[in-house]
């Protein structure tokens, strides 16, 4: 019984793979098919945010990363932190409305509604790879050498997905039944972003407050991305293992929340 409950969310990934694949493809196609710039929007938004944050935090507030004085370094560190954060925040934001958006499917067909938040999170991760390509290009333009530790991202992205999916399931299900969830989550995401060292380096945080960042898996994720891409560091085993463990727990817990609430969806939608 206990084993079943733990394995169930992973079985969803395996059993529903064809539906998930179809939905991810469909979402990417239809999301941009009606806009003039198409998939370009997936690039423009992070670039605009990059310019905005660089201006505010680097030029105005003079925040610095590491030892370098160069503004391009700030932009690189910022962008490297933004890429995983935006994937997370966009995934969660889309997961919030994933179920109501497909109300006819949930109400009228026998449909595995658990794949709805899931596919939005996968789309967000897929679009993140575009951000990574730009990051890589910027890296080379800035005269830095991309190193092989970057390949460790392939491993990091797995717990990243599990963590995002768990949170997405929980808020996605709750938002169907309690509409206030959307407000809470959109505010929460903003709060969470500033609680994560994205626009500032962790080194600027006073020592006595730094323990709080240990409680924030996103802080670990952002730092791991920076280590792999900018500092040529493969993630250390112990913290990475801890992140994996936390992600698996969140993944399973999120699924349980979703599964518990999903039978009420048809009553509400």
């Amino acid at each position: 019984m206990v084993i079943d409950a733990l394995v169930a969310p992973f079985q969803v990934l395996a059993r529903q793979r064809p539906v998930i694949t179809t939905f991810v493809q469909r979402e990417i196609r239809t999301r941009y098919v009606t806009s003039a710039l198409g998939i370009g929007w997936a690039l423009i938004r992070p670039l605009l945010l990059l310019i905005l944050y660089t201006f505010v935090f680097s030029y105005v507030l003079n925040v610095k990363f590491g030892v370098s004085e160069r503004r391009s370094d700030y932009a690189l560190y910022l962008f490297c932190g933004m890429v995983p954060w935006l994937a997370f925040a966009d995934g969660i934001t889309r997961a919030l409305t994933a179920v109501p958006e497909q109300a006819p499917l949930v109400k009228r067909m026998r449909f595995p509604s658990e794949i709805l938040p899931l596919h939005q999170i996968l789309v967000a991760l897929a679009l993140e790879s575009l951000g990574l390509v730009i990051l890589l290009a910027a890296l080379i333009l800035a005269g830095r050498q991309p190193g092989w530790p970057m390949l460790s991202l392939a491993a990091i992205v797995i717990p990243q997905f599990l963590f995002t999916a768990g949170v997405g399931w929980a808020v996605g299900a709750l938002s169907v039944l309690v509409p206030d969830t959307r407000q809470v989550v959109s505010f929460g995401l903003m709060f969470w972003m500033y609680a994560t060292p994205i626009v500032y380096p962790l080194s600027l945080v006073p020592e006595r407050l730094r323990w709080m960042y240990l409680l924030n898996p996103m802080a670990y994720l952002v730092e791991a991305y920076r280590g792999a891409v900018l500092d040529h560091q493969v993630p250390q085993l112990a913290p990475f293992a801890l992140f994996c463990a936390v992600s698996v727990v969140v993944f399973i817990a999120g699924y349980r929340v979703f599964n518990r609430l999903k039978y009420e969806f048809a009553d509400v939608l």
Partner: peptide, 8 residues
Amino acid sequence: GAGFHPEL
């Protein structure tokens, strides 16, 4: 046609 997507 519950699952049909208008753009596809």
